[in-house]
């Protein structure tokens, strides 16, 4: 058994440059989609507050559809489907678009539930001071909702990091794809996947630590009364 681990680590060291490159790609994708997913999620949330009934129901449909459909189907649709229309996108681009649509729907839903715990009187106060709807959103609604949603949003980032492993199914050469190659070359499947699990555990732990730090440093007294951790 120990012998097996020894040869496994020899192979691992040999392929380390490729594996590190894979880890880099995993982090690149994870960070990119977390940022685009948050930005687009904020846009969707803003539209969800629109006075226009049509806009609101479109947003509702968007959130419902993308939180109700598996991400992988969306990725396959773009990666295996679009070429039949002559559109060929790289695995990275497909991943970024697919993940962003999916994550934005979730983030918008979190922001909406944060919005429901806002104080209507504050909104009235801001209107009474003469803020335009956009100013009100920028300076009152969004800051409060973002602060309230930090736990939910950071859990989403953790999910994003884990879900990047899906991208290997559409040939994006991230970490798990490299592990596949490693396993296929030496047939040490259990060891390879176990090692992969440990690496993801470390990556996720890193995000958990960052999220805890963030939560500790942005505490505003009295605002987090509705704070609850859920994932």
């Amino acid at each position: 058994m120990m012998q097996g681990w020894h040869t496994f680590f020899m192979d691992l060291v040999e392929q380390m440059p490729l594996i590190l490159h894979g880890v880099g790609n995993t982090i690149l994708l994870g960070v990119t989609i977390s940022v685009t997913g948050l930005i687009f999620g904020i846009v969707v949330f803003y539209l969800a507050l629109s006075h226009n009934v049509i806009v609101r129901s479109c947003v509702k449909g968007y959130i419902s559809f993308f939180t109700g459909m598996p991400l992988i189907v969306l990725l396959f649709l773009m990666y295996y489907g679009l070429p039949s229309w002559g559109v060929r996108l790289s695995p990275f681009v497909v991943s970024v678009i697919g993940f962003t649509m999916n994550i934005a729907a979730y983030n918008a839903a979190y922001l909406m539930s944060g919005y429901n715990s806002l104080d209507a009187a504050e909104i009235d106060a801001a209107k009474s001071q003469g803020f335009t709807p956009l100013q009100l959103f920028k300076w009152i609604t969004l800051p409060q909702v973002l602060l309230l949603s930090v736990p939910a949003l950071s859990n989403q980032v953790i999910r994003n990091i884990k879900d990047t492993s899906v991208a290997f199914l559409i040939q994006y050469t991230e970490f798990f794809a490299r592990i596949q190659e490693l396993a296929a070359s030496n047939f040490q499947f259990f060891k390879a996947y176990f090692f992969a699990g440990v690496v993801y555990l470390l990556l996720v732990s890193l995000v958990v630590l960052m999220a805890r730090w963030l939560e500790r440093h942005i505490v505003i007294p009295g605002l987090h009364r509705t704070l609850d951790r859920q994932s």
């Binding site: 009187a121 504050e122 009235d124 106060a125 009474s128 001071q129 003469g130 409060q144 602060l147 505003i220």
Partner: peptide
């Protein structure tokens, strides 16, 4: 413009919590 000229003090004060 109108709203900026009329100061409003609300029943529940409505201070911005953040």
């Amino acid at each position: 413009q109108l709203r900026q000229q009329i100061g409003f003090v609300f029943q529940q004060f409505a201070l911005y919590r953040h």
